[in-house]
């Protein structure tokens, strides 16, 4: 059991939760994630990245988007209530050192896992350039937190409602052109990570992507999270979640993410997903 210390709504369907988890708070490092099971027994186990942690309070923060039945169940929990099971920290921590200049590209909800990585990169002495992108202004999260870390800060929206009207790959390409980039870390939708990798490839800039795949146990047992990296089968939960983006077979990964689409659609239909999210939105107003 893990108590919800605080719940806030960051955008239309994105929530932040601070959960009591002293052991995870103590051990977690940038780049790691947790598995959450909202209620017992019949609930799904879902992987969520750790956005922040407070070792003194003994809490971690997770940021998640309501995309299906299980994330909706989680969003419907209130401060003071508990989630039944939480396991972590999982995955290999991000390799942090003073690389020189690091570009952090965060797309949509991907800004959440990027936050601790950018923080750690900054702390290690790197110059940190942050590119944040989303479809529209309302969907941007953690802008202030990220701005506070960045030496250089670029915001893009697809519709131009805020910052530059560009895809994140456009400023990324400009930075590559300008030169002096030692490392790129990209986290966001698979398609964004794929094109970030394609953008940096011609410039031979080392690029990491943090993958969020289908998982059940999160400890290496089920193999549902398998991806092809450099022609080899890797498990995101124990070998990742970060991999050399130039080696990742993103197309197959995107294909596999659709594995349970028909079942998920049915479940979303059954629980009237959008309606329920909007209701949460109303309540928080």
């Amino acid at each position: 059991m893990s108590r919800i210390l605080r719940k806030t709504q960051l955008s239309r369907d994105v929530f932040r939760m601070e959960l009591e988890a002293p052991e995870i708070a103590r051990e977690r490092k940038a780049g790691q994630f947790v598995i959450v099971q909202v209620d017992s027994d019949f609930s799904e186990r879902i992987p969520l990245t750790i956005a922040d942690a407070d070792e003194e309070i003994g809490s971690i923060s997770i940021i998640f988007q309501v995309v299906g039945k299980s994330t909706l169940k989680l969003a419907q929990k209130s401060t003071g209530e508990s989630v039944e099971n939480i396991l972590g920290p999982l995955g290999m921590p991000t390799h942090i050192e003073n690389f020189g200049t690091v570009v952090c590209v965060g797309g949509g909800i991907g800004v959440a896992p990027m936050h601790p990585i950018a923080q750690a990169m900054k702390k290690a002495g790197n110059k940190v350039i942050i590119i944040m992108g989303s479809r529209t202004k309302e969907l941007l999260i953690l802008e202030d937190e990220m701005r506070a870390i960045a030496d250089e800060f670029i915001i893009c929206t697809d519709d131009g409602s805020y910052g530059r009207k560009d895809l994140v790959t456009i400023p990324l390409k400009e930075l590559c052109e300008r030169g002096g980039i030692d490392l790129v870390v990209a986290i966001g939708p698979p398609i964004m990570m794929k094109f970030c990798a394609e953008t940096t490839r011609p410039y031979h800039v080392k690029t990491y992507a943090s993958l969020n795949t289908i998982m059940v146990d999160g400890t290496g047992m089920c193999g549902g999270c398998r991806v092809t990296v450099g022609g080899q089968t890797k498990f995101v939960c124990v070998d990742g979640p970060e991999f050399d983006a130039h080696q990742v077979d993103f197309d197959t990964m995107m294909l596999r993410l659709r594995s349970y689409k028909p079942q998920e659609q049915e479940a979303n239909h059954r629980c009237h997903l959008q309606e329920a999210v909007d209701k949460l939105q109303e309540q928080s107003k």
Partner: peptide
Amino acid sequence: GLPNFMNIEGESLVGVSSANEFLT
């Protein structure tokens, strides 16, 4: 721990799973 695969073509297709995943 880790389930073995055959490393044959098409093992990443939708509908292929390890017995561990299926049974879990």
